[in-house]
Each structure stands twice: as C-alpha cells, then as structure tokens.
Design a protein around this nucleic acid. Structure first.
Lengths: 157, 157
DNA sequence: TAATAACCAAGTAATATACTAAGTTAATAA
DNA sequence: TTATTAACTTAGTATATTACTTGGTTATTA
C-alpha cells in the first residue's frame, strides 16, 4: 500500500465528484478550479481512474465526469490503487533464503501490515466520507447558500 | 499521513531491531545486510528515528542500536511520522473562502480520512506486528534454527 | 593505539511529482 | 455545416524525493 500526495489529489477529486456530480457531469476545469489542481494533471489522474471504471467521461459541451458507480461502492483503496499503482513489496519468496531467514521474516511482517492498511481503506467508501462530513457540518452550522453539505445532500435526495 | 517506500524501509528496519535487539545492540551493517538497504541510507533514517527517541545508539565496538522504548510503546505511526515528516495538508482555513466553500469542504473530508489512517496506525505497535507474525509462523512451521520467530520469541522471554 | 561503529555532511543518479504545451476526437449548439 | 466545448492523448520538463556514494569525525572498546 502506498499513500502519496498523488493519491490525495485523486481522493480529493473523487470527493469533489461525489459532492457535485448529483445534477449533471462535472468538468475537470471545475475540479481544477475548486481544488487547485492543474487541469492536465487531473487529466492524467482521470485516465487512470477511467481505466478502472471509477469514473465515466461524457464528451462535448455540457459534458464532464460522473462516478463510475454509486459512491457507496467506491472505496478509498480503489482510488489510491488506481493512481498509485500497487507496487508489490519485495517478493523475495523463492529468490532468496526465505526458510525462516531474517530478511523475509520482516518482509512478511511488513506485508501483513500493508494488507491491514489496505483492508482498512477498502472498508471506507466515498459515501462514508461524505456522510461523516455531513454530521460534522451539522454540528458547526453553515453559512454560504448553495455550497453547504446540507444543501448538496438535499439535492441528492 | 504519508506512506512511502521510505516509511516502509523505516518500519522494516525497526522490525529487524525488535526481533534481534533482545540480546544486545544491532548494528546498521547487520540491518543493511539483512534487509538489503544501503548503510548510509539507514544512517539517514536512524538519525530521524533517534531524534524522536525511537532508537538509542551505542558507539564503539560491540555497539549498535536498541529500541528507544519497549516494542509495545512504539506505534507504526510513530515510525512513519519520524522519517516521513507529517506534511500538513492544505490548511486553507482562513486563507481562502472556507465558509462552506467547495474546496475546503473536500479538504476537510480528506483531513478526516487522514486522521483516521493516522489513528489506525497509532493503534498498531511493533510488538503487535511481531506477535501477529508469531501466530502465522506457528501455523506453517519453521526450518532454519536460530532465525525463526519462535526462537526469537523464546530468547525474549 | 588500533579497530569498531555510531554520527555527520555534501554530493548525485534515478525516479516520481506536478505541470505545460499542443494536439485529436466526439458531442452539442449556433 | 460550423464553431464550441470538453474529453482524451502524447510528449516534454522543472522540481522534489529517493536511495545511495563518498569521505569524513567522534566515542568506545580491546
């Protein structure tokens, strides 16, 4: 498992999609402006997301991107793996002395941990994040019309 | 939270320490050989780990490194934060339009997730990892004398 | 006093990050 | 039909990070 700023950009962009994709497709230009990410970098990221069917592009005027499937069926792990390319950690099984050897012992412990992190992020969906954000927003109250979580959620309902 | 290969090297090295540091200090040369990490890179990593009191160095012949405190008091988050420099994610609170603005909404959702990952890794200690590895090893059985988890654990007891 | 191994600093090749530039293709609206 | 929009594609690049090399110094032990 890897968790870089690249993965963060991807998750952030997907969150933007989840929040704004209710009433029509969202353009990368919008996300670029909203999140302060360069358009071309977004295009790169979305090429990877599209390859995994996490988003669906619509061409032409009025076009943009939708989520590839419902927000509660897209996990954070899905997103991060799409852009960050799950690099398999030192798989020395077979190659080196792995019959209880010190090297592969620690490697297998690391693999276990990595698997745990992956499982953890597999259980968190975009929908979860948005829902949890909703609760928090409710506590603090909101001000600017049309851009609060409540109203976004109302539109979705 | 960041989770790079650098963090993986640090965790791997600390696991090595936890496993072999029972009967005396472990040299970076040993870890270098065991884990296939360059000595100088290890020195860089251990400078950061030492700064956070996660390891304790002993100079001179017969010297090496010990864990800075018991393995059950060192979390994976401690290790990763030591070498990876917890970069605070876009703190646009105040600077930009943050009263329900779309940008900071997604950013705060990301912050929440990042906090969750951090909390998750705070709950996992080196001792946990070693213990969980122990169980697994027991199931499969081991072969080479002196380097299996059972024997390492026996030495520790 | 010699050997060991931590500790320190500067430089570097290789890679990843994030972006710019310059297009092509498909869909819509004039 | 034509212009516009926005997805899609490719190539190149400045910057930063990674992982390492080199060449030291200091403290400790034999």
């Amino acid at each position: 498992m890897r968790l870089s700023t690249k993965g963060r950009y991807a998750v952030t962009a997907m969150l933007d999609l989840a929040l704004n994709g209710q009433d029509g497709p969202v353009t990368l230009s919008d996300i670029s402006e909203n999140q302060g990410i360069s358009l071309s970098y977004l295009e790169q990221l979305f090429a990877a997301l599209r390859a995994r069917q996490l988003v669906r592009g619509v061409r032409g005027p009025g076009g943009g991107y939708f989520l590839g499937r419902p927000a509660d069926e897209i996990s954070i792990a899905d997103i991060i793996c799409a852009v960050d390319e799950w690099v398999e950690f030192t798989r020395c099984q077979g190659k080196e002395d792995c019959r209880g050897g010190q090297r592969c012992l620690t490697h297998s412990l690391w693999d276990d941990l990595s698997r745990q992190i992956y499982d953890f992020l597999t259980d968190i969906t975009l929908a979860d994040l948005v829902a949890r954000g909703l609760e928090k927003e409710r506590e603090c109250g909101s001000r600017k019309p049309g851009t609060t979580l409540e109203e976004v959620s109302d539109r979705a309902a």
